[in-house]
Nucleic acid binder design. Structure first.
Lengths: 139, 139
DNA sequence: TTAAATGATGCATATAATATGCATCTATGA
DNA sequence: TCATAGATGCATATTATATGCATCATTTAA
């Protein structure tokens, strides 16, 4: 079981942006800065950033002196919501997918309820945590 | 986020074997029967069955009149344990993988603890459920 | 004793999902 | 008006997963 790498990168970018917000005054960070810091291809990070903008976790400003910042205070951005937005599907098992419904015991199978409960428990735990709860430890 | 198909198939096979146990006397089911019932390639189902045997969820008997049965009563086989055995890794995020440790903020990042808690919550929910708790509904 | 039935194993290939890169567009401000 | 920055769409590479094939090992009924 794994999340896709984009979810991982999104959280790393957000953690960086949350750290920047603590500075006085905070700067806008560029995609180039974030991708170089994390040693990730700029193109790849760009996709992730775009998704974060679409979902209103961060605001982007184009042009010279442009860049990115959190669109809300860090304690209002829940890890669970980020994961929900970045994962492109939640088809834990075949019967969760509207496309793939070939399971022969689908109507009478109770298993789907169990997995729904487990998934809820997983996300509920992530919802307990905001960006403000996971500051980078300073040495 | 998804489990691999083998985990799904393993559970479907186990559900069938648990149903068979209710018959008097119960028969041994063959891989061929199970794979044809679920309309899955026999080869593919065989891999799954082998893993279930290795992990002592079921017992296999070779030769004529051979087949498969649960190695324990259905109420002693927890869904969580099956999922643990079938999923080949639990690298939810990069920093969980011993091989891939490229994250620049790894030592000071708190995120891993959050994901550990979420994963525990997910599996704890599955541990609440045994094969006996998910009988096929009879019409 | 042997042949058919059954599971076990290793390797090869196909398919699908994901990651990555490239080219080009749009917006901003010095 | 040009350099800088994000936005978007498409193409390709890589990886993980699913699937198939061939062959071996074990059991037991005939």
């Amino acid at each position: 079981m794994q999340l896709n790498q984009q979810t991982d990168l999104a959280l790393r970018a957000l953690i960086l942006l949350a750290e920047e917000e603590k500075n006085n005054p905070p700067r806008l960070l560029t995609i180039r800065e974030i991708s170089e810091f994390h040693r990730i291809s700029r193109n790849h990070m760009m996709k992730v950033i775009n998704t974060l903008v679409e979902n209103n976790f961060i605001e982007a400003k184009r042009g010279q002196n442009g860049g990115l910042k959190l669109s809300r205070p860090s304690n209002e951005i829940r890890v669970g919501d980020v994961v929900r937005a970045l994962e492109n599907h939640w088809n834990l098992v075949e019967c969760f997918s509207p496309q793939r419904q070939n399971c022969q015991i689908l109507p009478s199978c109770q298993l789907k309820h169990v997995f729904h409960r487990a998934l809820s428990a997983f996300l509920a735990e992530l919802d307990q945590c905001t960006l403000a709860d996971i500051p980078l430890k300073r040495p």
